[in-house]
Amino acid sequence: MGNGNLLYVLRLGGVKILLLLLVSITGFTLLHLAPGDPLSQFTLAPGMTAERLAQIAHGMGLDQPLWRQYLHWLHGIMTGDWGRSFRDQSPVLGIIVSHLTATIELGLAALGISFSLGLGMGLMGALRAGRTVDDVTSVISIILFSLPTFWLGLVFIYIFSVRLQWFPTGNFSSPGDRSIVGYLRHLALPALTLGLVSVPVWSRYMRTFAGEILKQDQIRTARALGLSSGRIIVHRLLRGALLPMIPVAGIYLPTLLSGALVTETVFSWPGIGRLFLDSLQYRDYPVVMGVLMFSAILVLVSSTLAELLHHVADPRLRA
C-alpha cells in the first residue's frame, strides 16, 4: 500500500470515528433529556419508598451528572462492556445479538426483492429512455417511494392475512410449527413490505448510471462491431453501472438491516428494530444506546469498506 493510499485510509477512518463519537453524544443527550425516566416503572410498585427509589437510581447510575454518566458509558463501550439492561440485568450486547438473526434474515429477504426489482426497472428505464416503459417505471418508483411502510404493511395484512388467509399476520413462527414452509410464510409479508418500499433506491440509481453508460463511446463502438444486445448489456452496461453502486450498497445495506423498525413493529418481527422500540418505551437506556451504537457502527464500517472497495475497483479513483 502506497503512502497516498495509507493516508486515504487513515483520513477516512478518522472521519468515521469522529462521526461515531458525535452520534453517541447526540443520542445519549437526547435520550436522557426526553420526558420520562427508567424509575417511573418502579414508582407504582407496592411498598416503594423514596429511600428505596434513591437506592435504585444509585444502582443504575442515574444520580450522577449527565456528563459523568456519558463518560462511564463510553468507557464501557470502548472496553467491550456495553452495560446491562435496566429491565432484567441481561448484557446489552447479548440482547442485541439474540435479536440480530431475525433482522438479518428479514433484511436479506427484502434485499433480494428490492435489488432484483429495482435492477430490472432501472435497466428497462435506461434502455427505453423517453418511452412508455421509462415513464411507467418512473411512476411505479414514485408510488413505491411515497407509500408509508406501516400503511403498506397493514394493507398486506388485511388483504393476504385477514381476507385471503394466505399468510400469518405476524410473529416469527406459529406455535408448534417449526417447518421451513411455516417460517417462509411468516417471512413473506414483512420481507415484501420492506423490499417494495426500497425498490426506488436501486431503480433510480440503476436508471441514472446505466443511462450515463449508454451515452458513452464504448457502447456505440460495441454496436458498430456487431455485438449482440445481450452481450452489450451483460458485459458493458451492467458491469459499468454496478461499479458506482458499490458505495451506495455500503450505505444502504446496513441501513436496511437496522432501519426495519416500522416493518418489525407492524408484523411483530423479533428483530433489533422491534427491540429498539420496546426498549425506548421502557426507557431502557443501555439497550437503546446499544442498538443505536450498533447500528451506527454497522453503517459506518460498511460505508467505509464500500468506499475502500470502490477505491480499489475503480482505477480512476486510484489515479
Rank of each mutant, 00 (worst) to 15 (best):
V301Y: 03
I232W: 05
R207W: 11
V97T: 12
T208W: 05
G230Q: 12
L152Q: 04
I213L: 15
F160E: 07
T263F: 03
S173R: 10
R178M: 15
S116C: 09
V287M: 06
S90A: 14
L164E: 08
T132Y: 12
M293E: 09
Q89M: 03
L196E: 02
L277H: 08
T169E: 04
I56V: 13
L196Y: 09
P286A: 07
P315L: 10
I77H: 02
L196A: 04
G4Y: 11
R131W: 00
A188E: 08
R68E: 09
F115Q: 02
V92D: 03
S268Q: 12
V139S: 13
D314A: 02
A306F: 04
G94T: 13
V266Q: 02
A260I: 10
S173E: 06
R283N: 14
S179F: 09
Q64Y: 05
I180Q: 10
L194M: 11
V287L: 07
G122C: 07
F172E: 12
Q55R: 12
A224C: 08
S161L: 03
G112F: 01
F145D: 06
I219G: 12
H186P: 04
S98I: 01
I95C: 05
V299A: 12
A54F: 07
L71T: 14
G118Y: 03
Y282E: 03
V299K: 04
R283G: 09
G290P: 01
R131F: 06
T221M: 14
F156A: 08
G195W: 02
R68T: 06
M48T: 12
W151I: 00
P148Q: 11
G195K: 04
H32N: 14
E264H: 08
D81T: 11
G290C: 10
A34S: 15
S302M: 11
S228N: 00
S40C: 03
G59F: 06
D37Y: 14
F160C: 04
G14W: 02
S173W: 01
L147M: 15
L189H: 05
R52P: 05
T169K: 07
H32P: 05
M48V: 09
I95A: 00
S268P: 07
V181F: 14
V201E: 07
L292V: 15
Q89A: 13
L280R: 13
G36H: 10
I77C: 02
P286R: 08
R283D: 07
H72R: 13
V299C: 07
L62Y: 04
G176F: 09
Y285P: 10
R185I: 03
V136I: 14
L108Q: 07
L277T: 10
L292N: 12
L106I: 11
F209I: 12
F294S: 11
G107M: 01
F115M: 06
L123V: 01
H311G: 04
L308A: 03
A109G: 02
G230V: 09
A224Q: 07
L317I: 15
S24K: 02
F28Y: 10
G273I: 11
T221V: 15
